[in-house]
Amino acid sequence: MPVPAEADIVHNLARVRARIEAAARAAGRDPAGIRLLAVSKGIDSTRIRLAAQAGQRLFGENYVQEGAAKVEALADLPALEWHFIGPIQRNKTQLVASRFQWVHSLDRAVIAQRLGEQRDASEPMNVLIQVNVSGEASKSGVAPAQIEALADAVLAQPRLRLRGLMALPSPDAAAARLQFQAMADHFQALRRALPDQAIDTLSMGMSEDLEAAIMTGATVVRVGTAIFGPRARRPAHVADGRA
């Protein structure tokens, strides 16, 4: 498929925003309470800039070095909010801590410690705990029973701010709906366990299933393909995963 031009990106953003608004109203929710995170992994800075010019402010990156380079390339757009949503290597926590405002993919206490120690910005880093709600061995994330323990590890770091949970449910639509509801339950349980913390973010739902996620309480939906179109395949020799 051809790469979307400027008009396509503007149109796609408008269509995704309309989907979010319709889903929110169908769920009896205020659309203003749901944030759109444009997943820009594999997308060049020029197209990200086009999306920003169309009013998009939140962008999510999966690969540390690629994302850090885009943060620097687009530093002239200070209103952008950068979210890291991929696996985090121990030897790349400094880049994550210094370039991103949010992390969605925290799943180990050692990474929380390193991010907290290496965060030197004036504002604490906003952190979401990734939950392996589907139980798939191929996916990162803590088991639901481990959420509170990892939350305690985040709270022990004064330069981190715990904001909520993130999940990558099953691609099967029926299973995903059950997992979205399970995540909503885990999110509410975390809020009850930590009433003094600003636990306000539940990140789940993507291009194909954002309506189901919103119906069950998502406050952030992560959308890439529906905005930018299909991505080029990442070269096999390029590694930026967890270690």
Rank of each mutant, 00 (worst) to 15 (best):
A153L: 05
L160D: 02
L194V: 03
S40L: 02
I129H: 04
A14N: 12
G116F: 04
D152H: 14
I9Q: 04
R29S: 08
L178F: 10
P4R: 04
G28A: 11
F228T: 00
A243P: 13
I147W: 07
L36P: 03
R231H: 08
G67Y: 01
L202W: 07
Q89L: 10
A18K: 13
V238E: 15
D200K: 07
H11S: 14
F180A: 09
A198Y: 10
S140I: 04
M215G: 11
A27R: 03
M204S: 08
L190K: 03
G229N: 15
F84R: 00
V223W: 03
F187V: 05
N62P: 09
F180L: 11
R161E: 07
E117M: 05
L178N: 13
E6K: 14
A14Q: 14
S138K: 09
L194T: 03
N62K: 10
L178E: 15
P78Q: 05
A182R: 15
A24C: 15
M1R: 12
G217I: 00
A14F: 01
S105M: 09
I85D: 09
R231V: 01
R15G: 00
V133C: 06
I129G: 01
G205M: 01
L150M: 06
A69V: 09
P169A: 12
L202I: 01
A218T: 08
A189I: 07
F228R: 01
I214M: 05
P4T: 04
A18F: 00
A68P: 13
W82N: 00
P4F: 06
F187L: 09
E72D: 15
R47C: 02
R163D: 09
L50C: 08
E6W: 12
S45R: 08
E21P: 05
V96C: 07
L168S: 11
A14C: 09
V16A: 09
A112V: 03
K70Q: 10
A23M: 07
M166N: 01
V142T: 00
A68M: 12
A32Q: 12
S203D: 08
R19H: 04
G116R: 07
V10T: 11
A149C: 05
T46P: 00
A69E: 14
L155S: 08
V10E: 11
L95Q: 13
Q89V: 10
D152M: 06
S122Y: 10
Q101F: 08
D8C: 08
P169L: 07
K92C: 06
E21H: 08
V133F: 07
R231L: 06
H104A: 04
P87A: 15
P144D: 10
D196W: 01
R163I: 00
A54F: 13
E81Y: 02
L36K: 05
A226E: 14
Q197C: 12
P195T: 02
G164L: 06
M204D: 06
S40C: 05
I199Q: 01
V10G: 00
S122P: 08
V96F: 05
A218S: 15
E81C: 12
E148H: 14
N91Q: 13
L178A: 15
G135Y: 14
V133W: 06
M183G: 10
L210A: 04
I88P: 02
E211D: 14
T219A: 01
N126F: 10
R191C: 03
F84Y: 15
G33C: 07
A189E: 11
